[in-house]
């Protein structure tokens, strides 16, 4: 679980933060524009655009330097030098935070194999250590949301509360059973089955691709733990009490089953019972 200190840092980072991907027009704007915009919103006042403040003025830690090396090897072609983004290829990563790195690289979505509507989940290319280095680099580059430490992020989660939150915030895209669903024009919400605690947490925090951001003010870390508990313990690791779940696709597979299993079996029986001519 996060300490208070972590959480405050996370909040501050988020205020400045930007999510992983954004539309072309906004890519070249600096991190601080977003920081200021956020501050302006909070204050309810508008001021002029401020010049960029570069985060990498401060010296980088060793881990981050390793990360930078990795970045320059595998990511630079799309995300550009110093992760500033490349028009038409990859968004700027300044301010997306290590949460975003952990989600995108940890679930194998990045590096992408080719440009398509949505990056699919793949076996990760980097080791957990390398992902941490990359994350540290991006974090030190522009700040942004960070995950609390630990693998198990749902220890004390309340299933019932998590279920309620899941249905109101997640089920519309990921479906009641967590199997995912289609979005407009070829995009989709992925299945939650293979997702780890950290990946689910990171996704809520960073809002990857078209997923909305669920910051800690909207869904507190405790509530996030509840949701993860519901997903992991009930949806993913609770056996279905009624037999094979038919993929939990709802009535469409049930309808298929009644014809392919029920009707087919019974028609074969009628063929056996009665005459065929």
């Amino acid at each position: 679980m996060t300490s208070d200190n972590d959480r405050r840092r996370g909040l501050f980072a988020r205020l400045r933060g930007r999510p992983a991907a954004r539309s072309r027009g906004r890519r070249r704007l600096g991190a601080a524009v977003r920081l200021l915009a956020a501050l302006m919103l909070a204050g309810g006042a508008y001021t002029a655009f401020a010049p960029s403040v570069q985060a990498q003025d401060t010296p980088m830690s060793g881990v981050a330097a390793d990360g930078k090396a990795l970045f320059n090897e595998s990511c630079v072609s799309c995300h550009g030098r110093n992760a500033q983004g490349v028009e038409g290829r990859g968004p700027s990563l300044v301010g997306v935070g290590s949460a975003s790195v952990e989600f995108q690289v940890g679930s194998g979505r990045m590096p992408m194999v080719r440009q398509e509507a949505q990056a699919p989940r793949k076996p990760p290319v980097f080791t957990p250590d390398e992902i941490r280095q990359l994350g540290q680099y991006i974090q030190e580059l522009g700040g942004g949301p960070e995950l609390p430490p630990g693998e198990d992020l749902h220890e004390d989660g309340n299933l019932a509360a998590g279920g309620e939150l899941f249905r109101i915030n997640c089920a519309q895209c990921h479906a009641f059973g967590g199997g995912g669903g289609a979005l407009s024009s070829g995009k989709y919400a992925p299945t939650l089955k293979p997702a780890s605690d950290r990946q689910i947490y990171a996704a809520m925090l960073s809002g990857p691709q078209n997923m909305p951001v669920f910051g800690d003010n909207q869904i507190t870390p405790e509530q996030k733990a509840d949701i993860i508990a519901y997903i992991q313990e009930n949806l993913n690791h609770n056996q279905d009490p009624g037999g094979f779940n038919l993929g939990r696709y709802g009535p469409s597979t049930e309808g298929l089953a009644i014809f392919l299993v029920g009707i087919v079996a019974l028609v074969f029986t009628t063929l056996w019972i009665a005459g065929k001519s």
Binding site: G163, E164, R167, I168, A171, Q172, C173, H174, A175, F176, G177, G179, G180, G181, A182, A189, L235, D240, P241, G242, G243, F244, N245, L246, R248, Y249, G250, P251, S252, E254, A257, V261
Partner: peptide
């Protein structure tokens, strides 16, 4: 053998809750 209509996953009906598919 086949689970049908697992209502416990759907939760109670609330006008603002919906599922994909």
């Amino acid at each position: 053998l086949f689970q049908i209509n697992p209502i416990w996953l759907f939760g109670p009906y609330e006008a603002w809750v919906v599922s994909a598919a």
